[in-house]
Design a protein around this nucleic acid. Structure first.
Lengths: 207, 207
DNA sequence: AAATCTCTCTACCAATTGGTAGACGTAGAT
DNA sequence: ATCTACGTCTACCAATTGGTAGAGAGATTT
């Protein structure tokens, strides 16, 4: 009980919304799980929607902070990519609900995307700049940075979070399996990013 | 009204569950949308859960059929990959709710994954065999086929469906943009799949 | 000591939820 | 003509939903 009530609520809500989804999680269920009454939740957060938004803000802060510190190490080329992949996988293992929340929020038709997007945008910009620099330095296969980032995002977050798909493919969700998946993903990304020759294979122009 | 009631219900439910999610879609809302009473839905499907399962079955059938016909064309190498990507993108444009349902069902903590997984498994097996054959023929970068398939799945489905993430990255969801994204994705996949030299760069052994 | 503030609680409430029971009309079979 | 099966409906219902009102306990301030 060392953690104040408000934080405990945020924590449990993040876990619940990120796992079961916003609509499937009632305030009563959340309160039960915390051993408090629903009205206590409504004291700290004026409505269910407001709680959701607070959860998003908290998650965004965590995500940004994580990438902030990672970026500050100033790695280059595939080392940086590998480090980021490592962070995402660590997140997928230790706080799967966080990535789950991202998927919940980015669902088509979601109203709260912008709230998350706005806070994460600077990190995206930084990532894009990084890709651009690496391309200019000839370390990455040249292509449109934004679209490349989208592909990278989809691949990494997908491989890290699509646990059920992996199970369906016959991959056991063990620690060993996770490590193997990460290694294989990095192999995949290296193949996708490394330029063919000393120069470029494609012309690099867009459209 | 040429379509029988049961099919109309399945159709609307697929769209609703794939867009807003299962928990967020009430039977009343569904019925309203169809201009019928909720009890008519419960006449055709004994419970909300049963309707969900019927929707999954219908979606699985559509997906399998689509890949069945695509695979029967017997393309090889990147041509086959490109054709599949094309199909997925066509799906993302014409029936986004179908891919949305897949994401809904594959959410961690979902109880109905197995139902979908079981029906799609043969298609996955075929895809894995395809990758293995291509590697043996030296047309694809050698690596673990299952994990490669997972990476490919995540990338393709992600890029095709993560509309909100794309919007957050500043990519307009126009038709031109979609085409560009598909082209860039294929470029990405080509880079990831094509072997480096005549032989392999990696040893190909696993673990 | 009184008043205020902070936090959690009990007591409700109107709306919505998934689901049951059964009436009603239509069409085909006997 | 009657019986039966089918499909949709009205009428309910108990449980759950998010939310309001305000009591009460404990600490802090005046």
């Amino acid at each position: 009980m060392t953690q104040p009530t408000r934080d405990r609520i945020l924590d449990a809500a993040l876990r619940a919304y990120g796992t079961d989804g916003f609509a499937a999680t009632s305030l009563d269920a959340l309160a039960d799980q915390l051993g408090i009454r629903k009205q206590t939740i409504l004291y700290w957060f004026p409505s269910k929607q407001a709680l959701f938004e607070a959860v998003i803000d908290a998650a965004a802060l965590d995500l940004v902070k994580l990438f902030e510190t990672e970026a500050s190490r100033g790695l280059a080329g595939l080392d940086q990519v590998e480090a980021i992949v490592g962070q995402v996988f660590r997140l997928a293992v230790r706080r799967p609900e966080l990535l789950g929340l991202v998927r919940e929020v980015t669902r088509p038709g979601s109203l709260s995307v912008d709230r998350l997007a706005q806070q994460v945008a600077p990190a995206f910009d930084r990532a894009r700049d990084f890709l651009q620099r690496e391309m200019d330095a000839g370390r990455f296969h040249r292509s449109d940075p934004t679209m490349l980032l989208l592909s990278l995002y989809s691949t990494v977050v997908g491989v890290a979070t699509e646990l059920e798909v992996q199970r369906a493919m016959g991959l056991a969700p063990t620690l060993r399996g996770t490590v193997a998946r990460r290694r294989e993903l990095i192999r995949f990304l290296r193949a996708a990013l490394t330029p063919r020759f000393s120069g470029d294979e494609t012309d690099g122009s867009w459209r």
